[in-house]
Computed example of a mutant assay.
Amino acid sequence: MAEDWVAAEVPLAIDYNDAPHVVMMATPDDLADFALGFSLSEAVIATPAELNSCTATTLLEGIRLSLRIPPARAQALAQRRRNLVGNSGCGVCGTQHLEDVLRHPPRVAAAIAVSEVALQRALAELEHRQPLNALTGATHAAAWARADGSLAHVREDVGRHNALDKLIGAVARAGDDVRTGFLVVTSRASYEMVQKAATVGIGFIAAISAPTALAIHLADATGITLVGFARDDGHVVYARRSTED
């Protein structure tokens, strides 16, 4: 009889200053990275230093992340409270207001120029840097690549948004400059993925699958170079930052 490995997926509740904010279905790994990355990519905080503490508590129902942020940030968050239950494949499920869904980040400060050689190196390395997916076949990955294509960080999760948030947290905790690297994801490039990347200043995204029309629009508007269908035999550029920027 052969063994079969399956990916964990548990409810993950996030509270800010004791006020419930969101419940996500996620893989319960790299929780500190997730807490920081989610807080940054959702514009709850502006800098890593504003996340004052993060405490994880395992409950019968799932895991609770209790986060402390400055009072002014908590007050601003209360004004746009969305208290949602998000599943592992959706970044906006349960959002109460259209402006929460279509939050428009500012234009990114800079976008790195990535060579085809660097992109191919990143894709090749990522194929061998997904231990959870190798065991289960059920997770997405998000990777942070240096300018030469070598991978600095990789994070996995059953949800593509969660994997990206974990990666953003890892990059922030390491103090990496987002202007000097690029993002590679194993999922499609949805609007929410581009929105999260733009919010933290990432200027180049390469997705193994396709982008959506709204993702392309947002990439154009925020000055992000967006590549889709990134494979070992080529890729498609859907949005490119102007050389005049």
Rank of each mutant, 00 (worst) to 15 (best):
W144A: 01
S150M: 04
R121W: 05
R68D: 15
A141S: 13
A134P: 13
A118C: 09
R81K: 05
E127C: 04
S115T: 11
R155Y: 11
A141C: 11
A72G: 07
E127D: 11
V114W: 02
P71W: 07
P71A: 14
K166R: 08
T180N: 09
L102I: 12
A163V: 12
L119P: 12
Q120S: 07
V117L: 10
V117D: 11
I112H: 03
L132K: 06
G159H: 01
A147V: 04
P71N: 15
Q130I: 02
G86E: 05
R121I: 09
H153Q: 10
G159I: 01
C90P: 11
L132G: 11
A76D: 12
L123H: 01
D176C: 07
A72V: 10
P131Y: 01
R179L: 08
G86T: 13
A76Y: 06
S150C: 09
N133F: 13
L167Q: 07
G169K: 03
E127I: 04
P105Q: 05
A138T: 09
T139H: 03
W144I: 02
L77G: 14
H128G: 06
H153C: 03
R81V: 09
H104N: 08
R68M: 12
N83W: 08
S115H: 04
F182V: 03
A118P: 10
R160D: 13
A147R: 10
I69Y: 05
G91Q: 02
A72D: 09
E127N: 04
R160T: 14
I112R: 02
R107L: 12
S150V: 09
A172F: 07
P131K: 03
R103A: 08
T95V: 15
D148S: 02
K166T: 06
L126E: 11
P106I: 02
P105K: 02
S115I: 09
V154M: 03
V117S: 14
R146I: 07
N87W: 08
T136Y: 04
L132P: 10
A174C: 00
